[in-house]
Amino acid sequence: MSALPDAEKLCSELAERIRPHLTPNTAMIGLYTGGAWLAERLHALLALPEPLGLMDIAFYRDDYHKQGLHHDPKRTKIPFGVEGRDLLLVDDVLYTGRTVRAAMNELFDYGRPACISLAVLADRGGRQLPICAQHVGAKVEVPAGMRLRMKRSDSGALSLELEVE
């Protein structure tokens, strides 16, 4: 198993990959919790004019009937009009694609965006839905039975870590 990439370095690289694709119409939305941390960083690095949107997809998850409602859902805050916007969704790790599907479902309850693209720090494969990211920090292989998560230290530094599922 190779070492996990440096999340701080990936974050800067990801920002530069996104930069050429920005339009005056772009607005960013981070998905709680890891995606919100990453989005805060990307939003600052890219100096986007619109304030950052934050989204918790707890009310749109497809496993509610099996798992129940997640504890402590955060309040979704989208401080700009979604209608006709070029949206950039940000999450830390892309895996099954179910979170992104739920996020898109929630977004359409706010309006009809012109387009949605997805930026993730790490893509670990294992998709269960036809969803892909346009901007990827790195592809990361994750051993079976493990979960890849992004952490944020007290000082605000980002890191990738493996946990037992």
Partner: peptide, 12 residues
């Protein structure tokens, strides 16, 4: 937050 937006419905 849901009750303040345009579509005041979630699919739960």
């Amino acid at each position: 937050g849901v009750t303040e937006r345009e579509v005041k419905k979630v699919p739960l």
